[in-house]
Structures are given as C-alpha cells and as structure tokens.
Design a binder for these strands. Structure first.
Lengths: 228, 228
DNA sequence: TAATACAGAACGATTGTTCTGCTTGTAAAG
DNA sequence: CTTTACAAGCAGAACAATCGTTCTGTATTA
C-alpha cells in the first residue's frame, strides 16, 4: 500500500504489516513493476510534458501491459501521486553527492541546487507536476499537504547547514526559499534566454546577492543529505 | 496574416498589404472574433492549464461556433501562437499603470512585476505556454525567436529606467533578468508555500537583496510603459 | 459574382477506465 | 511433504468520451 516502500536493491525486508523478513518473490516483482512504472512516468513527464504524458505512453516506456499498469495504479491520478511521492523522497535525500558540501562556496551549492531543480529529469518532471497542480484542483487537494510538509522539512535541513550572520534562522529559511524559487523560475525563463552561459552567469550573480546573508555552519562529520 | 495586428479598439487602419484606411465592417468583425478567441484562450489557459485547454473549451468560452474558430485559426497551434503574440504585446506595453513608477521604491516596482507575472490571468497563461514550449518542439520552434526578441526589448527598456551604481548596464540587465526569473518561479513555488503573506514577504526580501545594485534613472517626463 | 465569414456534421485517432480471462505464487488443509 | 483453494499479478479486449482536423453547406459583404 505504502507507495514509498520500494527501490531497495537488495529488498531485504519490507517494513509492512508483516514484520517477517524476506518478502516473497511475488511482492518483490510487484514493487519492481511499480518502480518501473514510476520511473517511466518521470521520463515521460520530462520528455513530453504533463499535457502529453498519457498512460499509453507510460506503458510503452515501461514496457508493461495495459493490464499490469491498471492493476498497480487503478487510475492515472494514483500513478501521478505515487510519482510525486517518489520524486520528493529522492530529492530530499539524493544519492550521496560526489562532492561533499563545499562548506565555503555558496555559489557551488547553488549550482548543485540548480542542477537538482532544472538540470535533471526528476527535477523537471516535478516542475511539470507542480504546474499541473495549479489548475488541477483534485490533484492539488491530494498532494498539497505532502508538498508543504516537504517544504518544512527542507527548511529544517537548511537551517542545519546554514546560519545567518545576525542569528536569525528565519532569514536563512527565507533566503533559501527565494533561492529555490529562483531556480524553479529558470525553467520558465529558459525560453527567453536559451544561452546556457547566460543562465550560469545569472546563477553566479544570484549567489553573490545572497552570500552576504549566509554563513556555513560547522559540520559534525555526518555526511547527511544536502538540502534542496 | 500578421497575428500581431489586432486588438485596436478603434481599428483605425491596418498596416497590412492594403494601405487604404477604414477597414470594412467585415474585417472589423473578423478582428473582433479573433480577439474574442484569443481572450478565451487566455482565460482557459489560466483556469484549466495547458493540458486541459481544448479547442472545444475555447469555443465554449468565446461563444463561437466550431466553424468560426477553425476559420480564423485552422489549427490549434495557430491559435496558441496568436495568443502568445497577444500576451507579449500587452505585457510589454501594459495599459498605463495607475501609479507612475515609484522612482524611489524598487520594492514597489517588484510588486508590480510580481502582479504582472503571477497575479494576472495573462501572466499565468503565459507561464502555462512557456512550460509547454519546453517539450513541444514544434511550438518552441515557432515562438522562440519572438520570445528572445521580446526579452531583448525588455532589457533595453529596463536600462532606460534603472542604472547600476558602478555604471555597468549589463549588471542592470542581469539583475532584472534574475528578478523576472524569481517571479516566474513563484508560480512553481506556490504549491509549497500557499500562504500569500509568506510570498509577499519573500518578494520584499528579494527587493532588499537587489536594491543596493540599482539606481532609478531620472525620468524625462515621458510616461512610457513600465518594463517587465 | 466571387471570395469571405461562419455554422455544424463527420472523421479517425487517442484519451482514461472498466471488464473478462488466464497464469502463478502462497498459505492453509490433508 | 503434498495437495488444494484462492487471491494476487497480469494480459488484452472493449468502452464511451473527447481530442483536433476536415469537410460540406449557407449566408453575407465587397
């Protein structure tokens, strides 16, 4: 039932109703199918956009039958919501970044942020869905709580990494909210400014705008996930 | 043919092939029908989003027959492009703002900018189309030139209003490009931050971030349109 | 009189959902 | 350890509804 229980390569044990370990072959295949469908949905959202992401396209991409798709996700809305859950989960705790946080260069962190929001299929897929939630009230009603929760968690994580020179944590939260907003806006600005170099310069300039108001906190060795 | 020649309330003369003035009754009605359809398209884009903006919905909203619609716009793509032209034109030269430029308060100008991008049906409709151009390559190919041109014009207008303390006009352009990007991002950030007060605070804070790098130029009396 | 402006039916293609079968893993019964 | 019963997993046809486009026919104006 839980859409967020998946993806474990080893599939050692499911913390489901049954506490017993070693989920059966059946469950394993099922979770794998779900995972494939979600990944296919992300791919289609990124490549074709929300408007042209049909379930026919998704099942083609995932190479599963129509029956299998409708079995795991009885409606398109269920599939989209499961996809959103997957996106949020992965974006909050991304696979350990190759480089640790720069600790000194905020602009480098901003570039990492930009890549996560506009530079990956997952980030762009999320943007497509976010845009859709604006007008799709049914979808919005089902995911808005998740989104605000996610945003709050993010704020908490950010405060763990950065501090304000004047000690106001709320300002740190606000600055990073502005940063995220700016990064999301890049997707909509790109049609106007197709030159990647210009985009990168803007990111760098934005970094100089917010840098005076942020200090990196001393890290305590734990290689926690980066905040978005 | 030119999709951008329309909307004139008085419909005095068309700078078309025929230089002769006083367009006939026929042409007048035709232009009005086109205008109605474009306005209906904007309405639907804002209310239903790009994905759910069908030509059936548009013709219902415009209260015209299917035949009339297909007569003026033989394909949906033509209608969308004409709508984009209309949006850009109106957003570049908006109807004379009630208040003149504040001349001193940059934050007030930013609020005006925010309203134009995220606070009006036209702004939101444009965002919907911008998002669609990301994946719709056919549409993108037909409007990208228009968008970049529009952006360039905007940059020129901005430099006419603002100056950099160190005299670098390019920095003014970049700062305002960042501002526009931030405003566009608000549409995608809203699902995370539904509280309007928080959005407004973020806009104000953003204003304090860029204010040190902008000076308002002395105006020469001309009440020109505001830059976006 | 001839092109323009429009009305509306008809088109095939595609949308998302529902439905009927068939296979297969799994847990209980013998 | 078998055997059996049953639900889960899945394949694919059928569904009405809607998509955008094309077509034929009629009225109006230049």
């Amino acid at each position: 039932m839980s859409a967020s229980a998946h993806l474990q390569k080893a599939a050692t044990n499911q913390n489901n109703l049954k506490p017993a370990g070693a989920g059966g072959v059946r469950q394993r295949q099922s979770l794998e199918a779900r995972h494939n469908l979600i990944e296919a949905t992300i791919f289609c959202l990124d490549k074709f956009g929300y408007a042209d992401t049909s379930i026919a396209r998704i099942q083609d991409q995932a190479k599963v039958s129509r029956g299998a798709l409708t079995h795991h996700f009885p409606s398109k809305e269920e599939l989209v919501i499961a996809t959103i859950d997957s996106l949020l989960e992965k974006l909050l705790r991304p696979s350990l970044p190759s480089k640790k946080l720069s600790q000194t260069d905020i602009v480098a962190d901003l570039r990492w942020l930009a890549r996560n929001i506009t530079g990956t299929a997952r980030g762009r897929a999320l943007s497509e869905v976010l845009m859709a939630t604006r007008t799709d009230k049914k979808l919005s009603a089902r995911v808005s709580a998740r989104l605000t929760d996610w945003n709050t968690k993010l704020d908490e994580a950010v405060v763990g990494f950065y501090a304000s020179p004047n000690g106001d944590d709320d300002d740190v939260r606000q600055i990073w909210m502005i940063a995220r907003t700016f990064m999301r806006g890049l997707i909509l600005q790109q049609p106007f400014t197709p030159d990647p170099a210009q985009i990168e310069q803007a990111i760098n300039r934005f970094g100089t705008l917010i840098a005076p108001y942020l200090e990196t906190r001393k890290r305590d060795g734990v290689d926690d996930a980066k905040p978005l």
